[in-house]
Design a protein around this nucleic acid. Structure first.
Length: 108
DNA sequence: CAAATGACGGGGT
DNA sequence: AACCCCGCCATTT
């Protein structure tokens, strides 16, 4: 598959997520101008060229859940990268202490 | 062309 | 929390 214009836009947005913060697939989709495109965001990340060095691990499911299949290598990789940035991860979940810090996590 | 798929989301049980 | 169900939609079967 070759990248579409929407893929480029999605990559651009993910690229701009600051270290230490996370966004949901749906949120990235909205910011890219595709309010119903959460699944397309997931696809765009999956096919993203490695050399773009996208911080794909900062994109999680709504409700702070890691959406990658828990048995995959990519899952473990995402957990490791998130912890490296200070997040507390329990199983497939990203724990956020306060409500206010939740907002901060959603965009620095 | 019809059916299945999925790194999704929101609601309900 | 753990499921199930349905809407959504580009891609792939």
């Amino acid at each position: 598959m070759s990248p579409t214009v929407s893929d480029l836009k999605i990559w651009q947005i993910v690229k701009a997520i600051p270290k230490g913060s996370i966004l949901s697939y749906g949120e990235v989709a909205r910011r890219a101008g595709y309010p119903k495109g959460a699944r397309q965001v997931a696809r765009a990340l999956k096919i993203a060229p490695e050399e773009l060095n996208l911080p794909w691990h900062r994109v999680v499911g709504a409700g702070h859940r890691i959406s990658i299949p828990a048995d995959s290598a990519a899952f473990k990789r995402q957990v490791r990268l998130l912890k490296r940035e200070g997040f507390v991860v329990k199983g497939r979940r990203i724990v956020v202490a306060e409500i206010s810090s939740l907002d901060r996590a959603l965009w620095g």
